[in-house]
Design a protein around this nucleic acid. Structure first.
Lengths: 338, 338
DNA sequence: TCTAATTTGTGCGTATGTATG
DNA sequence: GCATACATACGCACAAATTAG
């Protein structure tokens, strides 16, 4: 029984020994290696087996007792009382960038997780090195990692530094990572394909689909481009992708697709200057719905996912320590601009 | 172990002893004589071995901690956390909420600070207790604090826990804090007064000014309200402030002021339903400019500050360790909706 | 009932970082 | 730079409760 529990304290670690033991036992109880009602190894057994002093064991057991996870019976032993480990889990949220819909996601996640979680947030802004160093430097500081690995290069090696049971991939699911990782993701290639297909009749009234993005901090996933290209080929809709688009070069008869708010504003301004009429002279699509897009130009058509729901699903996976891949479907908000 | 570290303070040097020790230890860490994760000599060991007082050791160790190079563990010791010795300061950014213009500010600050600063960000979402605990729990971990104390209750006691030389107040400058605190702030009362006054002729064409905000996470500084009230009294413009406004109750002849994007969208939707014409049947103002507001409804009139500039000023104060209060002026972007 | 072994529970000592004059 | 009080981490010794024989 106790021999099944292989654990050694790391004396050189900065974590206190009793804390290390406590975390280990919480995992053991969560994983049902010791069932509710069963007896924990006695203090002196644990003391010898784990190679720590009796007091260290006692400190760990005492902490578990204070949490209500175990109860002590003097002269008998410590017994598991509950699996509801009311632990404060420290979570690192590693997002790509700060923007409007990210706030929706963040709030939803925080709200649905509730009080027993301590959440820190950081942004990598598509800087691969920053992403790596944030993972490396915080490996031991957090008990759980929610990662948004939006990169067109391979970062799976950095992610693999973390135990897969303590990682949730959010929004993006990099190729090369398997079912051992929990995830709530968008399948950009598929979603944009399906989204554009549902707009096919409208899109046929334009001569081409032109994707524009300008900012230095802007980023388009390769998979999104792949989905758009497949749509373009399958349905013979010409596709152009402009990185660093000169908005004054806007033309009649095209349907523009703006990536960021800044790009969207740029297209609209150019449209005004040329006195184009939206939906007739040109079309306009955008990604990720926000309150203002509902009313901008009488409603901008967007291809978007439900970030509220994404946060809720993520929170649920984290709370139940469930490893599962959830495809967060996207939908088209068909409005006025196409 | 400690005997490998031969270091003697130079009493004749003009460099403080703690600075000498700090530099020595940085070299030791750079040269991998002490590896990441390993323990530094304890304070009392170092105190005896290096022939300096405990305080000197503590000052050196503390400085290393504020650079993010080492971390302290009570009862255990100081441990090397990172080899990034180029980092001169670890900064905690404590913002109120995540939103569009906050990103502008954040990016500007990060960009103007440059590479040698490690910046963490957290949000308090107008939760006073969270604000306090974030300060208390991170007091020794960071070398500098950029605080956005947007509260209508007094939080100066929490701020005073930090050395004033290591604090920058951003956006808000709470009453009760003096010139010993660096600040780049908006004077909401004054700014909104001046802003509204510049719109006086336009505002006189409406029967009243109605401030609407709805969200649970929404917040209006008392000083902003005070500024609006003073304007209302001085120029006899009726003012109504609705917390939890029912947008369907929107009326002709009034000028509405929306606090958040969500409120703005709510007013516009209600306006459409009633078929009001903007700028004639009703007016619309908003706070904080964003790219989309430039094009929404042909341009929404906003009272706003320059967050790009605010970030630049803040970075400059931090880098030069300058203690100065900078009033970040706001201006009116007069557009189509009033 | 007594005894010995096992187990939980308590007190004290030492080393370490933290905070304050 | 020094002194002091304090919290935390860890270990040793011993007392109190339980159980088996």
């Amino acid at each position: 029984m106790i021999s099944c529990l292989d654990f050694k304290v790391d004396d050189s670690s900065k974590e206190p020994k009793c804390k290390q033991l406590e975390e280990f036992l919480l995992d053991v109880i969560r994983e049902k290696k010791i069932l509710v009602g069963a007896k924990l190894p006695s203090v002196s057994q644990a003391n010898k087996h784990f190679g720590v002093s009796r007091d260290t064991v006692l400190a760990a057991y005492g902490a578990l007792q204070q949490r209500g996870v175990v109860v002590s019976r003097p002269g008998k032993g410590f017994y598991v009382a509950s699996r509801r480990t009311k632990t404060v889990l420290k979570i690192l949220l590693l997002f790509d960038a700060m923007n409007q819909y990210k706030e929706t996601l963040y709030r939803s996640l925080v709200q649905h997780l509730g009080r027993n979680y301590e959440i820190d947030i950081a942004f990598h802004y598509y800087n691969e090195k920053l992403f790596r160093s944030l993972i490396e430097n915080n490996r031991s500081e957090y008990g759980y990692f929610v990662l948004m690995p939006h990169f067109n290069v391979d970062v799976t090696d950095a992610i693999r530094l973390l135990p897969s049971s303590r990682v949730l991939l959010l929004d993006a699911f990099p190729q090369g990572l398997g079912v051992e990782y929990a995830a709530v993701y968008q399948d950009f290639a598929e979603d944009v394909y399906v989204g554009l297909r549902s707009l096919l009749d409208k899109l046929r009234t334009y001569e081409s689909l032109d994707v524009v993005y300008n900012g230095q901090f802007q980023f388009i996933p390769d998979s999104l481009v792949a989905g758009m290209r497949r749509f373009s080929e399958d349905f013979k809709i010409p596709l152009h992708i402009y990185r660093g688009f000169d908005f004054s070069k806007i033309e009649k008869g095209k349907c523009y697709m703006a990536i960021s708010d800044r790009d969207l504003a740029g297209v609209i301004k150019a449209m005004w200057e040329k006195k184009f009429e939206i939906g007739r002279d040109m079309g306009l699509l955008s990604f990720d719905d926000t309150p203002l897009k509902e009313v901008l130009l009488g409603g901008v058509t967007t291809i978007t996912t439900d970030f509220e729901w994404m946060g809720e699903q993520a929170a649920s996976l984290i709370k139940r320590r469930k490893i599962k891949q959830i495809h967060n479907l996207s939908r088209v908000m068909l409005r006025n601009t196409i």
